[in-house]
């Protein structure tokens, strides 16, 4: 007699996999950390997404002082100030996008907020190919403490592919 595993792993049986949604839409917040990534994200925001929203922290300068509020570090793509904590609070995943060689300073404050709110973070570094190892290492060292997943991609299109893969 055929084993159950043999029977159930056939192509014929695969057709009976239940055809019902097995997940709810996830909220993904994509944040550009610098001007070059902001440009990339603006293009991306034009496309149709399930539940992805796009922000920039490129105006962010240095490290915030003790006791300073998180407000004002984040804005949407139209330039309206957004409350970082509020945005992070409603997210399932925060994706930080940085251009290789840029300082990625804002990563710490966004990462801090995500860590407080227990939100998963992913960092995407674009254009690592054309930059010196040293400059890239600098960007990475700012991102590394705050990113639970870090990707260095050569093609901007990777962000779109990743967001689609994550059902964003």
């Amino acid at each position: 007699m055929q084993s159950e595993s043999a029977r159930m792993s056939s192509a014929a049986e695969a057709r009976y996999r239940i055809d019902a949604p097995n997940s709810k839409p996830r909220s993904v917040k994509v944040i550009a950390l610098d001007h070059p990534s902001e440009r990339v994200i603006k293009d991306l925001a034009q496309r149709k997404w399930n539940n992805a929203s796009f922000f920039t922290a490129s105006a962010f300068g240095g490290t915030p002082k003790q006791g300073e509020s998180f407000a004002g570090w984040l804005s949407d793509l139209a330039g309206r100030t957004k409350n970082l904590i509020e945005e992070v609070n409603g997210a399932d995943l925060v994706v930080m996008v940085a251009a290789a060689g840029e300082s990625a300073q804002a990563a710490s404050i966004i990462g801090e907020a995500c860590s407080v709110k227990r939100v998963m973070t992913t960092a995407l570094v674009l254009g690592g190919q054309s930059i010196s190892d040293e400059a890239l290492s600098k960007t990475l060292s700012h991102l590394r403490p705050w990113a639970l997943m870090l990707v260095i991609a050569s093609a901007e299109e990777y962000i779109a592919d990743m967001l689609t893969a994550l059902r964003a």
């Binding site: 997940s23 639970l148 997943m149 991609a153 893969a165 994550l166």
Partner: peptide, 11 residues
């Protein structure tokens, strides 16, 4: 339903 740690596969 891929998650962040699946970025190797996504890439």
């Amino acid at each position: 339903n891929l998650v962040s740690t699946d970025n190797g596969i996504i890439m």
